[in-house]
Amino acid sequence: MQSWLTIIGGVLMAIVVYELLRRQVLKRAALKIRRAGQRTVDSAMVAAFKVLANAMTIQEVAGAIHSVPVADVWGRGVMAFEYVLDVPGMVTADLPEVRRLFNNELQAYAIHNQVVAFR
């Protein structure tokens, strides 16, 4: 009886260790993928900001342009990043024009650098 309990305990412990290691490996792989995506998005945004800066005055809030992941709640493979900008004198009515400029510049960047989008 004691040997069966030892075997069952060992199997349960092995399963727990396996699951912990598997989760760590998956977490590390997801972090690498997110960082690669974040670098791509940051470089695209830097290019878009350069073009947009010619059209209006933009100042980065924290110095260098960098993104912050919004949340990890959408599931595997979904990446969303946030940028904070301080644009003096901008009103809500200007936002559609800014969105259009950003979309056009990001589209041109994607075509020029062969960035593939998945939908």
Results as ranks from 00 to 15, higher is better:
residue 2 Q to S: 07
residue 3 S to N: 07
residue 5 L to H: 06
residue 5 L to M: 10
residue 5 L to V: 10
residue 5 L to T: 08
residue 7 I to K: 08
residue 8 I to K: 06
residue 10 G to C: 13
residue 11 V to W: 11
residue 11 V to E: 07
residue 13 M to K: 03
residue 14 A to R: 01
residue 15 I to R: 02
residue 16 V to I: 13
residue 17 V to G: 07
residue 17 V to K: 04
residue 18 Y to Q: 06
residue 18 Y to F: 15
residue 18 Y to C: 11
residue 19 E to D: 11
residue 19 E to W: 10
residue 21 L to M: 06
residue 24 Q to S: 11
residue 24 Q to W: 08
residue 26 L to R: 14
residue 27 K to M: 03
residue 27 K to G: 10
residue 28 R to N: 12
residue 29 A to D: 11
residue 30 A to C: 02
residue 30 A to Q: 11
residue 34 R to C: 04
residue 34 R to H: 08
residue 34 R to E: 15
residue 35 R to H: 11
residue 36 A to F: 04
residue 37 G to D: 04
residue 39 R to Y: 07
residue 40 T to L: 15
residue 41 V to Y: 02
residue 41 V to W: 02
residue 41 V to D: 00
residue 41 V to M: 13
residue 42 D to V: 13
residue 44 A to K: 01
residue 45 M to D: 00
residue 48 A to L: 02
residue 48 A to T: 11
residue 49 F to E: 04
residue 49 F to Y: 07
residue 51 V to M: 02
residue 51 V to A: 10
residue 52 L to Q: 06
residue 53 A to S: 15
residue 54 N to Q: 08
residue 54 N to E: 09
residue 54 N to I: 01
residue 54 N to D: 06
residue 55 A to N: 03
residue 55 A to D: 05
residue 56 M to A: 07
residue 57 T to W: 02
residue 57 T to V: 10
residue 57 T to F: 07
residue 58 I to D: 00
residue 60 E to I: 05
residue 60 E to M: 14
residue 60 E to K: 08
residue 61 V to W: 06
residue 61 V to E: 09
residue 61 V to F: 11
residue 62 A to C: 03
residue 62 A to R: 11
residue 63 G to K: 00
residue 63 G to N: 01
residue 64 A to R: 09
residue 64 A to L: 09
residue 65 I to L: 15
residue 66 H to A: 13
residue 67 S to E: 02
residue 70 V to Y: 14
residue 71 A to K: 12
residue 71 A to R: 14
residue 72 D to W: 09
residue 72 D to I: 05
residue 73 V to D: 08
residue 73 V to E: 09
residue 74 W to N: 14
residue 74 W to K: 14
residue 75 G to F: 09
residue 76 R to S: 13
residue 77 G to S: 09
residue 78 V to K: 08
residue 78 V to Y: 10
residue 79 M to E: 10
residue 80 A to C: 09
residue 81 F to Y: 15
residue 81 F to M: 10
residue 81 F to K: 02
residue 81 F to H: 10
residue 81 F to T: 01
residue 82 E to L: 15
residue 82 E to M: 13
residue 83 Y to C: 03
residue 83 Y to F: 15
residue 84 V to C: 04
residue 85 L to T: 01
residue 86 D to A: 07
residue 86 D to V: 02
residue 87 V to N: 07
residue 87 V to G: 09
residue 90 M to P: 00
residue 90 M to V: 15
residue 90 M to I: 15
residue 91 V to T: 12
residue 92 T to H: 05
residue 93 A to P: 00
residue 93 A to D: 14
residue 93 A to H: 07
residue 95 L to S: 05
residue 95 L to M: 14
residue 96 P to T: 09
residue 97 E to P: 00
residue 97 E to F: 05
residue 98 V to C: 07
residue 98 V to S: 02
residue 98 V to F: 12
residue 100 R to L: 12
residue 102 F to A: 11
residue 102 F to Q: 02
residue 102 F to K: 01
residue 103 N to M: 08
residue 103 N to S: 14
residue 105 E to W: 01
residue 105 E to G: 01
residue 105 E to Y: 04
residue 106 L to T: 06
residue 108 A to H: 05
residue 108 A to P: 00
residue 109 Y to H: 12
residue 110 A to V: 02
residue 110 A to G: 05
residue 112 H to K: 14
residue 113 N to F: 14
residue 113 N to K: 13
residue 114 Q to E: 14
residue 114 Q to R: 15
residue 114 Q to F: 07
residue 115 V to S: 03
residue 115 V to T: 08
residue 117 A to K: 04
residue 118 F to P: 00
residue 119 R to L: 06
